[in-house]
């Protein structure tokens, strides 16, 4: 009887350990994403949050929100250029026109990759990792 109990307990422990091992192991991509995302949240706090808000909500008709997943998707290739060099002229975000000038941030490519990964996967957006390599390619094509 005692043996049976000990036996079943050890089986349960074994099963728990094995499942624990499996779930704690993440794929390389997941780890990379988390690294980009968490660094990006720090860049966001210091460089973007004052204007775009804690939740990417923007500021009324003055500063656009970062919650327009569709805009971010369509303009994915030019996001790096916008972050680095700023933005002038009109843009249409969620059917509202914004005309204010966004100043250049002067961030390094890796910081841009971090912050873009953060923004495009926060505030209701979900588009995966934007890598350093991707950002460098996009920056080469800035107009």
């Amino acid at each position: 009887m005692k043996l049976k109990i000990i036996g079943s307990i050890s089986i349960i422990l074994f099963v728990l350990t094995v499942t624990g091992m499996f779930t704690s192991c993440q794929s390389d991509e997941e780890i990379e994403f988390k690294r980009y995302y968490s660094s990006g949240s720090l860049v966001y706090q210091t460089k973007c949050q004052n204007c775009h808000g804690t939740h990417g909500e923007g500021l009324l008709r003055l500063i656009p929100p970062l919650t327009d997943s569709n805009y971010l998707k369509i303009n994915k290739k030019s996001l790096a250029c916008i972050v680095k060099y700023g933005l002038r002229g009109e843009i249409n975000i969620k059917n509202k026109i914004f005309q204010e000038k966004m100043p250049p941030t002067g961030l390094a490519p890796i910081e841009i990759a971090n912050v873009l990964t953060y923004v495009t996967n926060s505030f209701g957006n979900k588009s995966g990792t934007i890598t350093n390599q991707q950002v460098e390619e996009d920056l080469a094509g800035c107009k």
Partner: peptide
């Protein structure tokens, strides 16, 4: 009005 640093958060 063109203040990029603390003004937006102040106005908010």
């Amino acid at each position: 009005t063109t203040c990029p640093s603390i003004c937006p958060i102040m106005q908010r």
